[in-house]
Simulated scan of single mutants.
Amino acid sequence: MKNIRFDKTGTGEFSKTLHSRVNSYFKERQKNTYGDRRMVLKSIFMLSVFFLPLAAIGSGLVSNTLLLFALYVLSGLGMAGVGMGVMHDAIHGSYSKNSLINKYLGYSMNLIGANASVWRIQHNVLHHTYTNIDHGDDDINAPFFLRFTPNAKHYWIHRFQHIYIWFFYGLSTISWITTKDFVRAFRYKKLGFFKKKGEFNKVLLKIISWKVLYYSYALVLPLIMVPLPAWIVILAFLSMHFVTGICISLVFQTAHIVSETSFPKPNEKGLIESQWISHQFATTSNYAPKSRIFSWLIGGLNYQVEHHLFPNICHVHYRKISKIVSDTAKEFQVPYLVKSSFLKALVDHVKMLRQLGKA
């Protein structure tokens, strides 16, 4: 990855105005930017939906195949909820003003089989800084059979990616709990992360330790306790992750890989010819802004524009500040991308995948 930079010329008046108005919103209402009791209740709910079905499975009381699959799938929905509505804010440091609370709730990422340290680099650093930039944003740096940007190399197989993509979206968290964290940890080390002496070895040890813990209660214990053939238990376990993978992939991908978003390419000097804030508006799209229940379930990630501009603000505030962001963008004639529903965003995502597969 070359040293990618953003244009810093200009007055930056739009950025100053936007941040001033958002800060005034919180100051005038005497609110802080962190989570509140709504986050506590959501955390209890999502963690319960994830852990309670696994506890029931591990108790040995489940002997019906259909019930086993139902409990694992329910746990998969809880896993997605923990990822989008608890862990996400915690690792961004926006869950609480107490850094220890953010740290320990961030470990919920580890409890669902992935690794918080690796994800922090992938998401907080690379995705948020270099959104939709090939070789910069690790969310679009995909295997050769997937093409998420027009700047990536095209292969003939891409013409079918809008058909087979669903299978690989479903496999995404299975990849996380097996190889992805290790592959990316080594890659990030080469990119200059984990510089402190012994840090990389500690990261590897933590990845292994957390995964052993996760497999112990999510798969090994059920294999021991459930009076059904092992292959049925393993298939049910995989179905849990398939549901989680589909949920998480679609929520994140429909915010960036759609027809209206751009995929800027740095010049030969590594310069992106726009300011960072303008880049975020150009590469990110909201959807379903009026759907409060849906927004609650996915951790406010339908307000992806607000999240990219203010990742240090908890998602429970996004709906309110979105009006400030959209009005300010309109005033400064900055495009503010939004789809009225998740279905429209999803349809457009498929359309974009087909387009990327043709050229």
Rank of each mutant, 00 (worst) to 15 (best):
G299C: 04
S262H: 08
V316G: 08
F194M: 10
I224M: 15
W276L: 14
V305E: 07
Y155T: 00
S322V: 01
W231D: 13
G76H: 13
A56C: 14
N201C: 04
Y130V: 02
A70D: 11
Y104Q: 05
S96D: 13
F167H: 02
H92G: 06
H162P: 06
N3F: 04
F69D: 08
Y336N: 14
A185R: 02
A282C: 00
R5G: 12
M84E: 06
V334F: 08
I257F: 00
I272G: 09
L271N: 01
H162E: 00
K358C: 00
T33Q: 14
P229C: 09
L353M: 15
L71Y: 02
V305K: 05
K190E: 15
I272R: 05
A282S: 14
R319M: 04
Q253K: 02
H307D: 05
F167P: 03
A185V: 04
F168D: 00
H279F: 03
V203F: 11
L213N: 05
K344D: 14
G76V: 08
A116T: 09
T129N: 13
S239W: 04
F252K: 06
I224C: 09
G10A: 01
G76Y: 07
G76C: 09
N141F: 05
K196G: 10
V347T: 08
K265A: 09
G85I: 09
L271I: 08
N64I: 03
H154Y: 05
L146C: 01
G78V: 07
V73F: 12
P289L: 05
G78W: 13
S295I: 01
I246T: 02
I163D: 03
N23W: 03
R159E: 02
E260N: 15
N151L: 14
S249N: 08
Y217L: 11
K8Q: 15
H315A: 07
Y214C: 13
F50Y: 15
L228Y: 10
E331V: 01
M240S: 12
A142Y: 00
F186K: 05
W210I: 04
M46C: 09
I298F: 03
L71N: 12
F194G: 08
V22G: 11
Q355M: 10
W166E: 10
H162S: 12
A255I: 03
F294N: 01
G35C: 13
E273C: 07
V22M: 11
P289V: 07
S117E: 13
I324Y: 09
I165R: 00
M84D: 02
V62I: 14
Y72M: 09
H307L: 07
R292L: 12
L238K: 00
I234R: 07
Y169P: 03
S216V: 02
I174A: 13
P266Q: 07
G81H: 12
F167D: 00
